[in-house]
Structures are given as structure tokens and as C-alpha cells.
Design a protein around this nucleic acid. Structure first.
Lengths: 210, 210
DNA sequence: ACCTGAACACCGTTCAAGT
DNA sequence: ACCTGAACACCGTTCAAGT
């Protein structure tokens, strides 16, 4: 009955619904219902569920260039790149859920941009390649952890957009002064720390001539 | 017919089968078949599939203490901790698959050990807590990426236990000298680099008094 | 060209029934 | 106490049939 169904609109709806409810929640029938269409109709526009998931990831990751900085300081450009990649991955929590058996081409393509940013650190070609790879892995890995917590776990109770109260571990440690700090988690702050430490590490490697 | 089925044997079998075939592959019926039992039998020992997955993760992560080092150098102990956590996560690839939607208590409990290791770096209590968290997140995040590639992606062709040939990205970059290095990937080397850079970063933070 | 209902082989899970 | 077959409400996907 409904007309004008396109592959694009299907993928957009799938991405939206997965970001809201998680990828397991989204079934072909639920997606079809949402689009006011019968389930088999989707198969005229899309080969199968796997292809649809890939298209959703590519849509989430390929939407416009990442924000970049032209600050003369390479450390600022590096931090900016990592922050904006994280922002994109946070905007679409289903992406880190889906990149299980999928390492989509769009993640792969991010490497090109990362190389440009990493090159400014003045390392050898091999060091530049390694650094570019590490930036992407660190951000992606971090955001995967972060999104797992954002989706709601038994021991993390949200207290703000990036902050949580954390349940104490089963075996209470002897270090009470540290336990106090472990009772809260701020993912923004932890991400900034990771980025700062990576940049510091690169500086030191460079000072030692690598 | 078969007798002596226990919750433990069910969880062990589930973990083994998931490590071999992936978590999606394992269905209650397949697991039951493997154990020579009818599917509903499993529900006498286990509440449901989700509880079984959690138990499998806890089994994989809780199996014996992590290898530790008593080297006087805190940097060696830190690297040892991170390597052995990675080793454990690599031994059970299904864990990083499963922790995309669950943050099991066993991951949480690793923090206690990480705090002991981090404390030796001589940071403030807050800094120690942050560092402990970062160690766990970096290793877990890294291994999640790594296992995704190990499970087989279109652009990573294995050439050794931790090395891959990587397909070139769609948009060939202008930096040919770097592209050459991006054509191969060694996850062991990349992990060592990440660990080295983290330790370097901590040293520099400490030199600046944090 | 696009959409549908009916159907197939699967799921997780329940439950009355067996020993 | 432990295990089973039959059944229920779901999946992804196919296919003949409609417009």
C-alpha cells in the first residue's frame, strides 16, 4: 500500500531504531511494521539482514567528514581527531555493537585521515602508520567499552551524560583511598586522560628518536 | 538418558563451543545436541540463555589468577599485567563478543588487581584509580578490535598468529611511504606499542607532578 | 517494478508428563 | 530430582501470486 520505499529510507530507519533499542531488538518484521510494510517487502530492496547491518554502519560512519582542526600544534590536531571520532561513535551506539564480525570498510577508510593527522607528529613512516592505527583502535575500543556501559549494566548507574556511580567490586580492596575514586566514573575525563597519555607517550618516544 | 549433567559441564561446553564457532552460532538446541540431551533439559540447570552467557564469561575470566610479575620496576609489572589480561581475552574470543552487551562482574573485579599494579606508579589516589581503569579499558578495547579481526573480516587476511595482510582502503592516500606499512598488521607489535606509550605517558605525567 | 500472504526451517522457552 | 515431547510465539527468508 505505502509507496516510495527506498533502500536509503530502510537503512535510515534501521539505524535509528537500532540506536534507540539495540541491534538485537531490531527484527525484519519490526522494521517492516515501523515502515508500514509487510516483512518480505524489505527483501526486494535489501539482500538480507547482514547487508542491511553493513549499510547501517556505513551510513553512521560515512555521514560527512570528521571535524578537524588546523591548529599549528600537531598535539591539538591529534586530540581533535580522536574527540570527533569518539563523538561519531557515541552518536550511533549500535555501531560498536555491530562491529563484532564486521570490520566495515568505513572504519578501514578512517585510517587515511588518521594518517594525515599522525604524520604531523614527525615519526618515521612506520611509526606514523602505527600511530594512525593506534589512534583508531584506542578510540574505537574505548567507545565500545563506553557504549556497553551506556546501554545499562547492573553496576553502573548514570548520574550525568558521561558520569556514573559504580557499584563496589565483590572483593573490597585494601586501598580505601583509591576505592573512593573508583566509586564514580566519568567517561569524558577518562577519554581525555587516555588521549593526553597517548600524546605524552608519543612525545617521549620522539625525544628518544624513533 | 545421559546422566550426570551439571550446570558446570553445561557452562564449560557452552564456552568451548562459542570460542570455536562464535556466540551467535550457539543455540540452546545445538548445545543440547552436543551434550546428548533434549533442549528443555538445559532449563532445569540454567535459568535462560542470558544467564548461561554470563556464566560462560565469568568462567573464562575467573579461571585462575592472572600471571603477575614481582619485578622491582613498576613498568615491568604494569606491562606484565596488561599482557596477561590480553592473553586471557585472546584465549576466549567469545568474551569480547559477549561484552558488547554485558559488563560482567568478573571484568569489574579485575579492577582490584589493576589498582595494585597501578599504585606502584606512584600517582595520587585519584590518578591511581584512573590509571587502573585505563589499563583495563585499553586492553579490553584493544582485544575486542583484535578478536573482531581474528574472526575474519573481508580486508584482513591472516599470515601468522598475530599478523595480517590488509587490503588497501578505497581512497588511496597520497602518502605512499606510509601506505606500504599499512598493508600489513601485527597485533602483537601494536599491543606492545600501546603499552609502551601508556607507560611513557605515565612517566611524563609523573615527571610533571600529577 | 514493487508489494503481499502463506509457508519453511529455525529460535528461546514453557509445561504437562514421564522416570 | 532430573529428563522428555509437544507446543507457543517468535525469527530470517523464499516464493508464488497479486498490482
Amino acid at each position: 500500500v505505502a509507496v516510495g520505499l527506498t533502500k536509503e529510507s530502510i537503512v535510515e530507519a534501521a539505524l535509528d531504531l537500532m540506536d534507540e533499542h539495540g541491534q538485537e531488538w531490531l527484527t525484519m518484521r519490526r522494521l517492516a511494521d515501523h515502515l508500514d510494510v509487510a516483512a518480505p517487502t524489505l527483501y526486494w530492496h535489501v539482500a538480507n539482514r547482514a547487508e542491511l547491518m553493513d549499510a547501517a554502519v556505513d551510513l553512521a560512519l560515512g555521514g560527512g567528514a570528521l571535524a578537524t582542526s588546523d591548529d599549528p600544534d600537531w598535539r591539538v590536531r591529534m586530540a581533535t581527531f580522536m574527540r570527533s571520532l569518539r563523538a561519531r561513535l557515541r552518536a550511533h551506539p549500535c555501531v560498536t555493537e555491530l562491529t563484532r564480525s564486521r570490520y566495515p570498510a568505513s572504519v578501514h577508510d578512517m585510517t587515511a585521515l588518521a594518517v594525515e593527522v599522525a604524520a604531523a607528529a614527525g615519526l618515521s613512516p612506520a611509526g606514523t602508520a602505527d600511530l594512525a592505527r593506534l589512534m583508531i583502535w584506542q578510540v574505537t575500543g574505548f567507545t565500545t567499552m563506553e557504549n556497553t556501559i551506556r546501554l545499562g549494566t547492573a553496576m553502573h548507574e548514570p548520574t550525568g551524560p558521561s558520569s556514573y556511580r559504580v557499584a563496589p567490586p565483590d572483593h573490597p580492596g585494601a586501598r580505601e583511598s583509591v576505592d573512593e575514586h573508583l566509586a564514580t566514573l566519568d567517561t569524558d575525563a577518562l577519554f581525555e586522560l587516555q588521549t593526553t597519555l597517548l600524546i605524552s607517550g608519543v612525545e617521549q618516544q620522539r625525544a628518544q628518536g624513533r
